[in-house]
Design a binder for these strands. Structure first.
Length: 564
RNA sequence: UGGGGCGUGGCCAAGUGGUAAGGCAACGGACUUUGAAUCCGUCAAUCGCACGUUCGAAUCGUGCCGCCCCAGCCA
C-alpha cells in the first residue's frame, strides 16, 4: 500500500493513528489487531461494534486479526461460552485464521517475566490481607501508603513467589505486586496486583496453576507475544494505559500501541453482561438466544443478518464521546439489508374469511407472482387462488375513518396479483362478530389490473383457504419500554422497565403454501406486515415464524394523528 | 474537593484558523399491484457558556458550567 492509498483509510481517529504508524514504519508496516473476550457470557451488539473496529481495521489494512480469549480468571469462565463466542465471531464473518488463541496458553511465559521483574526489584510478594491492601491504597483524594512488605529482598520475593506457585499458601494470603508508586494520582499505578492465589482448576490448564495473572499484567504480555500492533479497547482502560506501557517497558519487550474508543450504548436496551445474565437467570427471557436479547445469538435467531449488524456498526462511527445510539438506527440497518435480499410472500396474521360469491366453487387458479417486485432476477412462483380466501382482519372496516382505503362497504379493492373485488355483505355469528365477508369479483381483472384503467387505491394480501398453511407466529417487540431502562426511581430496578408485551404468540396464522418446506433460519417478507424468519423450534408438524421487524407503518401514524 | 476523558440539530457524527458534510428520526410532496421500497424537498445566523487572540474561531488561549470513568486478590 502506498501513502495515497493509506490516506484513504484514515476515516476515523483510530484508523488515522494506524495510518501514521504504518507510514512511519513503527511496526514494520504490519497491522495486527485482536479481539479479547472473556468467556463468561454471550457476545452482544456492543461486541459487534468492537469487532467491527478490531477486525475491520485488520481487514482494511490487509493485516491479521486474532481471536484471543482473555481467560485469566478460572472462577468466572466456562467452556460453553468459548464455543458460542467463536460461533458468533464466525457468523459475523470476521476471519481470524484457523486458530483460536487463549491467554492462558501464555501462563508459563508470563510467569518467567514476573520472575524477571522480581529480580529487577520491581515486583514484590505482599502478605497484606485484601482488606489491608484496600486500606493502604488510599482514596481518590488521599495518597496510599507503602506495604510493610514492600522492601523485601529480591531473593526473598523470588522464594515466596515460587512457593506461591507451588501451592504452599492458602488463597488470599499473599499476592505479587508491581512496585510502582503508592502516591500516584492514578490509582492503577499504586502497586497493582499482578498475581493472586486461586486454588481453582482452569478450563484449559486444569490443575497446573494455583496462581493466576491479573488483567493489567496479562493483557499487554498477551499482545506482545502475539506481536499485536494496535491493541484497541474501550475508554474504561484509558487510565490503565500507563500501566500497560510500564510493564512492557520494564520488561524491555515488544510494545504494541493501545488506543481506546467509546463503548456502544443503545436506547431501549441494556448492554452489560451482568444484567444480561440476570435476565437469563431470572427467567425474564427464554435464554441468551431469546430473540428479544441484544446478544448476537438472539439477534441471529430473530432474523437479523450479519450484514445488517456490521452495516450498523460501520454507520455509527468511532469516537471517544460517550453516546447512546437510537435503536431506530439498528432497525433501519436491518430493514435496509432485508429489503434488498429477502423474497416476498403473503401471510395472514389475524385471518378473516372472504367468500367471492361469483367465483366458481371448485376452481383454482395458479397466479404467477414475483418473488421481489423490484428484483425480477429473484424469479416468480405460482400462488393458488380460489373462491374462499383469508385476508387480514384489519383490512376490513364497516365504518372506516377518513383516509382508510382498504375494504369497506361499497368499496372495491385489489387482491394482490389476483382480482379486483367489491364488497357485497357480511355474515355474523350470534354474538354479532363477523365470520365472513362476501364479495364479487371482476373476472376481467385477472392479475389485479383494472381492464378500463380505473383507479383502485387499496391493495390487500391474501391466502387461499383450502391451500393455507397453519403457523405460529411470534411477534417480538422491544424488551424495554423506556429509552433508558436504568432510569428508574430510587430503590427500583431495570426489571420494572421490562415491556410486558415484548412477546405475543399468535397461533392460527395462515401462511402461503410455498412456505411448506421452509427451513429454520429462512427469511422472507410477509408483504405489508414485516420481515419474518423460521424459528429453530419449527418441525414438520408445526411451522413457527419470528417477526424480525415490522415494515414502516405510515398508516399507523395517520391513525394516531386522526385520533388526536 | 485527586486523576483521566468528553461536550457540534431529537440521536449518531464529519470538521484540526477561511465562514457548519453525511446518516437516523421527524415533517411535507411525487410515485406505487406492499400505506413498504424508491425519489424530491424541509430540518444548526451557529458548534456547553463567557471573555480574549485574529481581517477571520466549532477549530487557538483563559475562566466557568455540565456529563462519564477510576479506590476488585474482575476483565
Amino acid at each position: 500500500m502506498d501513502d495515497a492509498e493509506l490516506d484513504e483509510l484514515a476515516t476515523d481517529f483510530i484508523r488515522s493513528a494506524v495510518v501514521d504508524d504504518v507510514k512511519s514504519g513503527r511496526f514494520d508496516r504490519r497491522v495486527r489487531t485482536r479481539f479479547p473476550p472473556e468467556p463468561n457470557g454471550y457476545l452482544h451488539i456492543g461486541h459487534a461494534k468492537a469487532l467491527s473496529i478490531d477486525a475491520g481495521i485488520a481487514y482494511d489494512f490487509g493485516g491479521k486479526f486474532n481471536l484471543r480469549f482473555d481467560d485469566t480468571n478460572p472462577v468466572k469462565e466456562e467452556e460453553e461460552y468459548v464455543e458460542k463466542i467463536v460461533d458468533d465471531v464466525r457468523w459475523l464473518g470476521w476471519d481470524f485464521g484457523d486458530t483460536v488463541l487463549f491467554g492462558s496458553d501464555y501462563f508459563e511465559q508470563m510467569y518467567e517475566w514476573a520472575e524477571q521483574l522480581i529480580e529487577q526489584g520491581q515486583a514484590y510478594v505482599d502478605d497484606l490481607s485484601p482488606e489491608e491492601i484496600r486500606e493502604y491504597r488510599g482514596t481518590l483524594t488521599e495518597s496510599g501508603k507503602n506495604s510493610p512488605y514492600r522492601d523485601r529482598s529480591a531473593p526473598e520475593n523470588l522464594d515466596l513467589f515460587r512457593r506461591m506457585r507451588a501451592g504452599e499458601f492458602p488463597e488470599a494470603s499473599r499476592v505479587l505486586r508491581a512496585k510502582i508508586d503508592m502516591a500516584s494520582p492514578n490509582l492503577n499505578l499504586r502497586d497493582p496486583v499482578m498475581y493472586r492465589i486461586l486454588h481453582e482448576p482452569h478450563h484449559r490448564q486444569g490443575d497446573t496453576w494455583c496462581i493466576y495473572p491479573m488483567y493489567d499484567w496479562a493483557h499487554g504480555l498477551e499482545d506482545a507475544i502475539e506481536r499485536v500492533t494496535h491493541s484497541l479497547c474501550d475508554l474504561g482502560y484509558r487510565d490503565h494505559r500507563p500501566l500497560y506501557d510500564w510493564f512492557l517497558d520494564q520488561l524491555g519487550i515488544y510494545h504494541p500501541r493501545q488506543i481506546e474508543f467509546a463503548r456502544l450504548f443503545m436506547t431501549y436496551t441494556v448492554l452489560s453482561k451482568r444484567k444480561l445474565l440476570q435476565l437469563v437467570e431470572g427467567g425474564y427471557v427464554a435464554g441468551w438466544d431469546d430473540p428479544r436479547m441484544p446478544t448476537l445469538a438472539g439477534m441471529r435467531r430473530r432474523g437479523y443478518t450479519a450484514e445488517a449488524i456490521n452495516g450498523f456498526c460501520a454507520g455509527i462511527g468511532v469516537s471517544t464521546a460517550n453516546s447512546v445510539v437510537d435503536v431506530a438506527f439498528l432497525e433501519h440497518s436491518v430493514r435496509d439489508d432485508l429489503n434488498t435480499r429477502v423474497p416476498r410472500v403473503m401471510s395472514i396474521l389475524d385471518p378473516v374469511k372472504i367468500v367471492i360469491d361469483d367465483y366458481p366453487e371448485d376452481k383454482v387458479e395458479w397466479m404467477e407472482v414475483s418473488n421481489h417486485p423490484q428484483r425480477p432476477e429473484m424469479g416468480t412462483r405460482e400462488v393458488p387462488f380460489s373462491r374462499e380466501i383469508y385476508i387480514e382482519r384489519d383490512d376490513f372496516m364497516e365504518d372506516p375513518p377518513r383516509k382508510y382505503y382498504r375494504l369497506a362497504p361499497g368499496r372495491e379493492v385489489r387482491l394482490m396479483n389476483a382480482y379486483l373485488v367489491t364488497y357485497k355483505d357480511v355474515v355474523r355469528d350470534h354474538n354479532g362478530a363477523i365470520v365472513e365477508i362476501h364479495c364479487t369479483h371482476d373476472p376481467d381483472s385477472r392479475g389485479g389490473q383494472a381492464p378500463d384503467g380505473r383507479k383502485v387505491r387499496g391493495t390487500l394480501h391474501w391466502v387461499s383457504v383450502p391451500h393455507a398453511l397453519d403457523a405460529e407466529v411470534r411477534l417480538y417487540d422491544r424488551l424495554f419500554m423506556q429509552e433508558d431502562p436504568e432510569d428508574v426511581a430510587e430503590g427500583h430496578t431495570f426489571f420494572e422497565s421490562l415491556n410486558p408485551a415484548s412477546l405475543e404468540v399468535r397461533t392460527g396464522c395462515k401462511v402461503e403454501s410455498s412456505l411448506q418446506d421452509a427451513e429454520p433460519g429462512y427469511r422472507c417478507q410477509f408483504m405489508r406486515i414485516g420481515y419474518f424468519c423460521v424459528d429453530p423450534d419449527t418441525d414438520r408438524a408445526h411451522l413457527i415464524f419470528n417477526r424480525t421487524i415490522e415494515l414502516r407503518d405510515t398508516w399507523a401514524k395517520i391513525q394516531k394523528k386522526l385520533s388526536r
